[in-house]
């Protein structure tokens, strides 16, 4: 397992895709913060300034294109050895499929978590540079920050597991970036058509999409139901998709 982790980290260090995606994330955050600054300056004329470093730190993952970039990056990471057929060399050297899969899982999870921390710290520092220092925030928002990391683990599990199940680079990128949203949209439509005659029917499958969890975390204090969803959904997504990817990769012929 140690050899596999070293192998994955070496590939990562030399991966152009990784540096491009990481830079795009920073550029995206920078542009959004500059835009926020302009809007805030305009709004301050009207007496409602809202830009501050703490807020920028808390919204770093939701304000940019973080989720989309992760969707692309994790598809590339999970499928690159399958796409280049180099996975043959790895299996043939006597590494179990489980060890190969989970070494990729651990390295990519580490990368995603580190990237998130860097984006948050960058947002905080850049906001200070823009003249928007930190402000004290309610305690529950720090709890939301912790839940954002849980959300991130769920998002990683979804994109990594799904990409591993698909095993083909182009298809995995497409499914991660737009496929999941399309599926939720279609399911939502289908469910509302089926239950169109039911009075007071207010179930929405979209509430179970990880995107909606992040939106909830950005809002006010969570209700009990929202808190449960914010905890259980990432765990559920991780369990289902990481296990699915593992089972498929164990059986795949290379």
């Amino acid at each position: 397992m140690i050899n596999l982790l070293k192998f994955e980290l070496r590939k990562l260090r030399q991966s152009k895709a990784f540096y491009i995606i990481f830079s795009l994330g920073l550029i995206s955050i920078t542009l959004i913060m500059l835009l926020s600054k302009v809007i805030t300056d305009l709004a301050s004329v009207l007496g409602s300034p809202d830009l501050n470093a703490t807020n920028m730190l808390l919204t770093a993952l939701s304000s940019g294109s973080f989720a989309s970039l992760m969707a692309i990056y994790l598809a590339l990471f999970a499928c690159s050895d399958d796409a280049q057929h180099t996975i043959k060399n790895i299996y043939a050297r006597g590494y179990s499929r489980t060890a190969v899969y989970f070494s990729k899982y651990l390295v990519s999870l580490g990368v995603v978590l580190v990237m998130a921390v860097i984006y948050m710290v960058y947002s905080f520092l850049f906001a200070n540079i823009l003249g928007a220092p930190a402000r004290s925030i309610p305690a529950y928002q720090w709890g939301s920050l912790a839940l954002q990391f849980l959300w991130l683990i769920g998002l990683h599990g979804l994109y990594f597991g799904l990409s591993s199940m698909i095993g083909r680079l182009g298809v995995a990128v497409a499914v991660n970036v737009v496929g999941i949203t399309i599926v939720f949209g279609l399911l939502d439509l289908l469910i509302s058509l089926i239950f169109v005659r039911v009075k007071n029917f207010n179930f929405s499958i979209r509430d179970y999409h990880l995107e909606s969890v992040l939106v909830t975390l950005m809002g006010n204090k969570l209700t009990k139901a929202q808190l449960l969803r914010a905890i259980l959904l990432p765990i559920g997504y991780t369990a289902v998709f990481v296990t699915g990817g593992w089972l498929v990769s164990r059986r795949r012929e290379v």
């Binding site: 180099t86 996975i87 050297r93 006597g94």
Partner: peptide, 22 residues
């Protein structure tokens, strides 16, 4: 126990699987 035994084997199957950008 094949995974362990395979550590002692080098192989080339079909066309070589290589990192083409390296």
């Amino acid at each position: 126990k094949l995974t362990q035994a395979r550590h002692q084997i080098g192989s080339l199957i079909e066309e070589p699987a290589l990192y083409k950008g390296c």
